[in-house]
Amino acid sequence: MEKICWENSSYQDCNVVIIGIPDESQSHSLREGTSEAPERIRKISNLADSYNRDGKKSLGFPLNGISKKVFDYGDITRKQIPETFEKIIKDFKVPISIGGDHSLSATIIKQFSKTGKLSLVYFDAHPDFITSIKNYYGSVFGDVIEVIDVKTSMQIGIRTPEKEEMDNLKKFQILVISPFDIAEKGIVKISEQIMSTLGDNVYVSFDMDCIDPSHAPGVSVPVPFGISSVDAILLLKKIANHGIVGMDIVEVCPAYDVKDRTSHLASRMIGEVLSSLK
C-alpha cells in the first residue's frame, strides 16, 4: 500500500499519525466509492505533491514548511477504530484519519471524549444532526451531542439542513457559520469569531462537501454555494495553530472526481494542517 507523501518517521518518533479507514457501510448516498478515498489520496499526494529529481524524491512543502514528524499507520477497519485510537490517544499523538463515510467520525469522537468533552468543529454542507435515526452518515452530530461541549462547538459551511436538523441546531444553540456568513462578514471576522468560541480540547471533522463543488467535485453529496478552498484551508490552519487533538477528512468520492482535483485538495489540506500544528 502506498503511503502518504508526508510520511517520514516511525510510529514511536512521530507527532502525527495518518490513518486510512476505507469504509462506507453507513452511507446512504447515491454516489458510492468513498471507501476508495484513502488509497487515492495517498497516491495523488505522491504524484502531485512530490517531485523526482535525479532519482531522488523531493516534497512540495507548504510555504512555512512542516516541522512535525509524520507516520502513515496504514488502513484499519471500522471495528478497529476504538482500539487503534485508544492507543494513539494514550501515546499523545495527533491522528489525521481519512475516510470513508462521515459516520466513522462518531466512533472516533466518542473515543476522544473519554479524555473530556470536546470542542467539535464540524465542516460540512449538511448539519448531520438527524436524531430520529442513529448511527449513519446523517446522524453524526446527533450521535455525539452528549460528549461535546455545545458552547464551544460549531458547524461551518452548512447550507442544506432538513427541518429536523434546523430544530436541533436551535434547541442546542449550536454556532452555525454558513458560506453566506463568510461572504458577508469576511474571513477575518469569521476567523476571529471561531477563535473566540473554541475550547481547549478541539477535534475537527471535515466533510469535503463543505467546499464548493467547483473546487471539490469528487464528493458523495455535492451542494452548490460552498466555501472556497482557500477560505476553508485558512480556517483549518488557524484552528490547527490553536491546537487540535485530532482530525478526520471524509466523503471524498474518487469515482466522481474530475482529474483527481478533490483528492489532491485533501492531500494539500493535510500538508497545510501539518504545517500549522502547534
Rank of each mutant, 00 (worst) to 15 (best):
A255S: 15
S229M: 03
E32M: 11
G99R: 03
I81L: 05
H215D: 14
D212S: 04
K117H: 02
G20M: 03
K93Y: 01
K185M: 15
L234E: 02
W6A: 01
S263V: 09
M195L: 15
A240L: 08
K43M: 12
I194Q: 00
A266Y: 00
I158E: 07
S67P: 07
I18W: 05
E164V: 06
M269H: 11
Q12K: 14
D49R: 13
T131P: 00
V252G: 05
M269C: 14
S25C: 13
P127N: 12
K3F: 08
G99Q: 09
D54Y: 11
Y203L: 10
I109L: 00
I270K: 03
H215I: 11
L198Y: 07
S9R: 03
K151R: 13
L277T: 05
T160I: 12
R268W: 13
L236I: 06
V176T: 12
I239A: 04
E192R: 03
S9G: 12
T197Q: 03
I18M: 04
S27T: 08
G55H: 04
N201A: 05
S67D: 14
K87P: 08
E83L: 12
D248C: 11
S228F: 08
P82F: 02
H126M: 01
G226R: 03
K163H: 13
G157R: 02
Q111A: 12
D248T: 07
D23L: 03
I98K: 09
Y11A: 10
D91H: 11
F61N: 10
V258I: 15
F180N: 14
M1H: 14
D260K: 04
S67T: 15
D231C: 02
L198A: 11
I108F: 08
G55M: 12
G157W: 07
T77Q: 01
H126A: 02
V150N: 10
E272N: 14
S67K: 06
T77V: 09
P179N: 07
I158K: 08
S229A: 07
D75M: 00
V258D: 14
S267G: 15
D72N: 11
I19F: 08
N168Q: 15
A37Q: 01
G55F: 08
T131M: 09
A48T: 11
S205N: 12
F85Y: 00
